[in-house]
Amino acid sequence: MDWVAVGLCEDVPARTVVPRRVQNTDLAIWCSTAGVFHAWGDRCPHRGMRLSHGFVRGETLSCIYHGWTYDGDGACVSIPAHPDLTPPKSICAAQYACRVQDGTIWVALQPTQAAVPELGARRAIRSLAVQLSAETLATRLKQPFGPVITLGGAHDIALAVQPSTDTDCLLHAFAAPDQDRKAVSLALEHLRDELEAAA
């Protein structure tokens, strides 16, 4: 997979950070005050604390443990224990390519020339976790394994699949724009129950 959907923009409003996992890689996805999205390794280089527990101020993300602060390029710009120190350029958070398309945040763990997958003329409904690997999920849906699975049906549902771990995935669901979001959301709940129950 080149681009993997990791969340809906509306679920990560300005000044928030959320943890996401893609193929066992822990990510901190955050949105700056100006609305710029970032995908970083979920680990502060100082003491290994998860950056997704941190806080956004302005265009920076800070670690909750010691307040080390990183700018939009991932460079450490402030170490509160040493207010007068300019942090060495070598201190930086791991960064991944991050794009926004169709109201969705996409991340590539490896550099890629590929285009972000198209979701057609659909609108975002919601994300929901499923306790199945992405491969098993595709098999049970009788669909080819890939970053986007098109189910069609009355709601014309498409699922952007985020393979989290070997046992879990996160689905980001989309449907035809004229569909009632609550109805689609409920349909997705039932679909999850069926998929998880199928042996």
């Binding site: 680990r43 290994g48 604390m49 998860r50 527990h53």
Partner: peptide
Amino acid sequence: RSILENQIP
């Protein structure tokens, strides 16, 4: 505790 359980590794 909430810090200690969230350090990697």
